[in-house]
Structures are given as C-alpha cells and as structure tokens.
C-alpha cells in the first residue's frame, strides 16, 4: 500500500476527530439536536484509519510495540491517542443507545483525546529531517483537514436544516480560507530553504503541480458547494453530500501530495 495507507489513516482519523469536535460544539448549543450519526461514523472512520495504518508497517502483527515509548516518541503518543479515540467513539455510540445521559461526558473526553491525537500526529512530522514536513504548516494542514472535513461530514450526518448549515458552512469556509491564505507563505519558505526544502518546492511547482492545483480546487470548490445554496431555496443536503465527496477527494489528493513531495535532508542535500 505504501504511502496510501498513511494517506487513508491520517485523513480518516482527522475527519473522525473533526466530526466529534463539531458534534460537541453544536450539541452544546442545540441540545435537542439528534446526533446519533457522529459517534457511529467516528467509530467507523477511526477504525478504518487504525486498520489502514497497519498497512504501513513491515510487521503489522507487532504493531502493539509502537506504544511503548510515550516518554519520547510522538508516534507512540499518536497511536495511544488514536486508539483511545476509537474506543471512546465506540463507547459513545453504544451509550447513546443504552444511557444517553452519559454520552455528553464521553464526547468531551473524545474531543480532548482527539485534539491531542491531531497535535501528536503533527508533531511526528514536525520532528523529522524532511523540511516540507518539519514546519508549522503541518499543524495547520492537519487541524484544518479535521475541522473542514469534520464540519461538512457533520452537516451531512445530522441532516442539517438551513440555519445550522449556514452556521457550520460559514465557519468551515473561514477555516478553508485561512488554510489557503497560509499556503503561499509555506511554499515561499520552502522554496527559499536549503537543498531538501527547495527540492520539495520544485516538486510541487513542477511535476506535482497538478496535484497541488487539484487539491485546492477540490477543497475550495467543495466548501463553496455548501455555502452557495444557502442563499436560495432548495435541497442543501444534496449540495452538502456533493461537497463532502469533493472535499474528501481533495483531502486525499492533498495528503498524497504531502507524502510524495517530502524530500529528506541527506549527505550532499542539506
């Protein structure tokens, strides 16, 4: 599977965590909103993510070894948080059916663990000798993916009405615009960097330019798909589903580019 296992792992896990965060935020303001979907889909998505991550390992059967170095390794921490998030999402899903009163606390714990997971995931890449990853932009990228994908996924799952759709879509659009606005800074810094950094910049400006363009067209186009129909009558849900598909493809393309354009520093390439 190569890089694709990590692409699927990171995008699915971030989407699941973002979905949880949106569920917490909206549920705290609209307690009556039925929202059984988020816990179920957060469980499925984080489960798929964990399974996909095994595809990256040379020895998947020993995967449990990866949680032994939480004192020093962000990778150990990430796996702990990701696995805990999966368990909390699953428990929340079960509790929603058995004892709905208790789910709120689990959602909050899941949200905090999830955010810690996205933070750890970012730190993994920031602590490498690959300049395209070892930057603040990785943190922006991962949190933006979680909030954008999670937001639209939430809208689709709770069958949002026009008012809720407006509220979430506008926030998501804001996140997407900030994410987009920071991208030129990142690319410029990369281009002005040393050998490995500028090699990554050259890949993104050269043979992988089409992926970079596709990523941003899909992400911005996907977000606009939810914002545009807010102005007129019609079926926002159809637009939201189209938006979710577009955004998911954009996130997958973008994450593939992230891995494909990472060039490590080395002897003679500093």
């Amino acid at each position: 599977m190569g890089a694709w296992s990590l692409v699927i792992f990171s995008v699915c896990l971030q989407a699941a965590i973002g979905l949880f965060i949106w569920a917490i935020v909206i549920k705290s303001r609209k307690p009556d909103l039925s929202h059984r979907g988020p816990a179920f889909w957060a469980t499925i998505l984080s489960g798929v993510a964990m399974l996909a991550s095994l595809g990256h390992l040379g020895v998947p059967l020993k995967a449990v070894n990866s949680i032994t170095q939480i004192g020093s390794s962000w990778l150990s921490r990430e796996i702990i948080f990701a696995a805990s998030f999966f368990v909390i999402a699953l428990v929340s899903y079960v509790l929603e059916r058995v004892n709905p009163m208790m789910t709120k606390g689990f959602y909050w714990i899941g949200g905090v663990v999830g955010l810690a997971g996205v933070f750890s995931m970012s730190k993994i890449y920031m602590n490498t000798v690959i300049p395209a990853w070892a930057t603040w932009y990785t943190m922006v990228d991962f949190f933006a993916t979680a909030l954008i994908l999670g937001g639209i996924l939430f809208l689709v799952l709770v069958k949002a009405d026009r008012e809720l759709a407006a509220e979430v879509s506008i926030s998501v659009l804001t996140f997407a615009l900030i994410y987009a606005a920071l991208t030129p800074l990142y690319l410029a810094a990369l281009g002005a960097g040393g050998g490995a950094a500028s090699a990554s910049a050259a890949l993104m400006a050269g043979e992988m330019q089409v992926l970079l363009l596709a990523k941003w067209l899909l992400i911005l186009g996907g977000v606009l798909l939810t914002v545009v129909p807010l102005r007129k009558e019609g079926r926002p849900r159809a637009y939201m589903t189209a938006s979710l598909v577009t955004l998911s493809v954009g996130a997958l393309v973008g994450r593939y580019l992230f891995y494909a354009a990472g060039v490590a520093k080395a002897i003679g390439l500093i």
Partner: peptide
C-alpha cells in the same frame, strides 16, 4: 526483534543511516 518496520527512523536521521 522489537522493530515493527514503521520507518520513522528513516525520516529522523539527517545522515540517512537507518534504512528500511
């Protein structure tokens, strides 16, 4: 025996010492 082949070491060395 402990290695699981996650390749994180290969992203961590500026000299390219650990190899998958």
């Amino acid at each position: 025996d402990k290695c699981i082949g996650c390749q994180y070491c290969t992203w961590s060395c500026p000299y390219g010492a650990p190899q998958y």
